[in-house]
Design a protein around this nucleic acid. Structure first.
Lengths: 206, 206
DNA sequence: ATGGATACTGTACCTGGGTACTAGGAAGAG
DNA sequence: CTCTTCCTAGTACCCAGGTACAGTATCCAT
């Protein structure tokens, strides 16, 4: 299953070339007039460079919404923001990404959108999750774990849940002294000096 | 850039084979014990077959949340629902998909998650978009404060930020002893016995 | 004025958490 | 075979955090 046709809306030669070299787009048409979208067959793939069409004014939102339903819109912004992304997704865009993203990322966006799904970047996704009342953890803040050994991660995780050294030692079948040893090296590596700060860090607070 | 290691958590031979034949997973380990996750190096890729681990009970959510932070979790359900997906995304999963999805889709999920983004199916995504801006997350956030006097709230807040008793006393212009007194009554009222648990509660964790 | 809630403080004490110094066994790399 | 990392652990020690018990002072409502 594929798209019927495809169009790249941009005024920038460079942007056009970048997208056109992605295999699903190598026969894409190019235009600088957004009204050309309306001449395409249904379910076409449309890449919109936001240097051309900024956030649409209220008077045009209805027509953009119609385009979002009729086709598969990928919006690429050179200066992306969560707010901007939200607007476009709301208008029916199937993907919102950085115009200067890596080729691999662009390819991924295309694959996902062509297959009928929506592609949303991590930061915007976190924002969406917050919107439904869930607490979200910045996925990229997981750097704390990288410098720790598996055993240390296990101890750190349990500390962050509020377990005491004794409890942890029993759970892991080791001595309380060893738990303390792990913690000392954890504090050393993470640059913290007590379990409360460690817990806050692990939970993404400060 | 790749993942450190990978694990497929399932009791089903068929499910294991399906995922293992995706190239990023062809050297994946297999297990039926979710605790094995905790022995993996940071940022590992973990596929969880929900026939094995259903929606975790409240008592285990904290540990799943920690796993979600430490690794990249892909949750596959044979009977997926938006509600279930929401829960897992909230717990830090990076992907939630149908366990019987096409190979192409599975591949896509893996690609997206490995590249550090989140993958969410269309219906769940629409649900997320609808929820944006509608919910006020503050409702239950303030419940801990209701039973505390203004001064106690101030102390509790600072404790949750990681401040020491001495620091707090200096900031408030009172004795360290008084800070301790406030804390004792706070613990009494909130039913906690140390500052770490207080901090976790204030930040909405357990 | 009396009782209750709030805020503040002192002395004394105990304990869990964290450090310093040390060290042995297992496993993997070169 | 040596070097390193990881996991383990003992002894000894310090201290921030927390409790027990007791007390003073203000404000406010009954």
């Amino acid at each position: 299953m594929s798209h019927a046709s495809s169009l790249i809306l941009t005024t920038s030669d460079a942007t056009f070339e970048r997208f056109r070299h992605q295999s699903p787009l190598n026969r894409a048409m190019r235009s600088a007039d957004s009204r050309d979208i309306d001449t395409l067959p249904a379910r076409s793939l449309v890449v919109i460079d936001l240097d051309l069409a900024r956030t649409p004014p209220a008077s045009q939102q209805a027509s953009w919404r119609a385009r979002g339903i009729a086709h598969r819109l990928i919006v690429a912004s050179k200066n992306p923001s969560d707010d901007e992304g939200l607007i476009w997704l709301d208008l029916g865009a199937a993907g919102y990404c950085h115009a200067l993203a890596s080729d691999a990322t662009l390819r991924q966006v295309l694959d996902v959108v062509i297959s009928g799904e929506l592609w949303v970047g991590r930061s915007l996704m976190n924002r969406l999750l917050k919107g439904v009342g869930s607490r979200t953890h910045q996925v990229n803040t997981a750097r704390w774990a990288e410098q720790l050994t598996p055993r240390e991660q296990e101890v750190a995780r349990r500390v962050a849940e509020g377990e005491s050294n004794l409890t942890i030692s029993q759970a892991l079948g080791i001595t309380e002294r060893t738990v303390k040893a792990h913690l000392t090296t954890i504090f050393e590596k993470i640059q913290m000096d007590d379990r409360l700060h460690l817990a806050l860090k692990i939970h993404g607070i400060r």
